[in-house]
């Protein structure tokens, strides 16, 4: 339980996210667009997906939808700068396991 896929297109966010997670002993991999996030989640063996909603190519909700339609059980944490209740509910109903709003604490 230590391989994490990070789907986020802002490199200044992924850089500290990877650093923080690696310091806690996790192995991380970053993808920067929706279609790659979806195919990596399907083809590789990750224990967790950290998913930004505003991804190019295909947004995070759509990626989540594809993963859940394929019946993959991988836990998904949504990472977003949107704080609307409607967004949160949509994410959780779409099969997300948790929801983290930016800015967030690493520790």
């Amino acid at each position: 339980m230590n391989r994490i896929l990070i789907a986020e297109d802002e490199t200044r966010i992924t850089s500290f996210l990877e650093k923080g997670l690696r310091a806690h002993g996790f192995t991380t991999m970053v993808v920067e667009d929706g279609p790659t996030a979806s195919s990596m989640a399907r083809d590789e063996d990750f224990d967790l997906l950290i998913l930004d909603l505003g991804l190019p190519g295909m947004d995070g909700n759509q990626v989540l939808h594809e993963i859940r339609v394929r019946k993959e059980k991988m836990p998904v944490i949504i990472l977003t700068a949107r704080q609307g209740l409607a967004d949160t509910v949509a994410g959780l109903e779409g099969g997300a396991d948790d929801y983290v709003t930016k800015p967030f604490k690493i520790r």
């Binding site: 200044r12 500290f16 996210l17 923080g20 800015p103």
Partner: peptide, 8 residues
Amino acid sequence: TIIRGHLE
């Protein structure tokens, strides 16, 4: 988020 994460 970026500033907070990098400083933390």
